[in-house]
Write a protein that binds this DNA or RNA. Structure first.
Lengths: 154, 154
DNA sequence: ATATAAAAAGATATTTTTATCCTAAATTAA
DNA sequence: TTAATTTAGGATAAAAATATCTTTTTATAT
């Protein structure tokens, strides 16, 4: 449903939301190792996310990526829009061109119930709110469980 | 979530379940037109489905594809297994390698609830049962609504 | 038997996605 | 101002998915 690129993007941004701020930028190398994703590919991706104002970067020593306050107000849906576009999500699970509530395929309502549920999270919650929830509930976005996080301090 | 190939395969088989039997075989051309799917690609796919005993075919004039009684006892999950394999379905929505009930990503439970629901349909119901339901509920698998179907009669 | 119709088989082509590499630009610290 | 570090940009490569084409085989009706 989501491309690799989009999964990487979401996880990177949530990771940066957990572990970075303007004073503690994180480099591609660290992110790629933490998330176990290919480094050069992720570099390109972060470049694109930067251009789309979903992450912020600075070059040079002590440079790297972080989320600005503006970045944190974006939603996961914004990320999906930039990387994958909206198409895959709006399409019928079985690929029917005219599937809809009034014209349902055999699995339409099962799928649309799911979509509505996940849309709610992806569209309504900001990245900041997502990050809060990850901390509260102790969810995983890398190999680490982030309720015990001390990674951003040094 | 499902590849084009897999969507085509499922829809083809449901279509054959609706419109064909041993006495009324359907050719690739007809199926591809009905489902709005590229013809040569579908031909390859049906070949593969035949080898996997999910559809039956005969060559020559009046030949074509249909579902044998044996074919009708297969499940949609069987189709998915043959075309896409099981991997995509078992993977975490965000691509986390170790996501699970005891190690959940931020959307794990939303996604797993959906998977359980759709698995139930895909694994428990036979193609024949699916076809019955499509007829009863008037669901769509091509451009046609199949509760008014007369396509298999001549 | 022969012509015909349809799937099977094998080869190839195109597109998309994923991934990598190399050089340039910018920033920082010394 | 220079060396080091890190992102940006552009080009390229590899893999997978999607799609097409051509020839062969099989079955049918006449």
């Amino acid at each position: 449903m989501l491309s690799n690129a989009c999964q990487y993007a979401i996880r990177s941004i949530l990771y940066l939301g957990m572990c970075s701020d303007e004073k503690h930028k994180v480099g591609v190398k660290t992110i790629s190792e933490e998330l176990e994703v290919p480094q050069p590919f992720l570099a390109k991706l972060l470049q694109q996310l930067n251009k789309s104002h979903l992450v912020t970067s600075t070059k040079g020593p002590y440079g790297g990526f972080y989320l600005s306050d503006e970045n944190k107000e974006k939603t996961v849906w914004d990320i999906i829009l930039v990387i994958d576009g909206t198409d895959k999500f709006s399409q019928c699970f079985l690929g029917l061109s005219k599937c809809g509530d009034d014209n349902p395929c055999p699995v339409h309502f099962t799928v649309s119930a799911f979509k509505n549920k996940i849309f709610k999270d992806f569209k309504d919650k900001t990245v900041a709110q997502f990050v809060e929830e990850i901390k509260e509930k102790g969810r995983y976005i890398s190999l680490k469980k982030f309720d015990v996080l001390g990674a951003a301090s040094d």
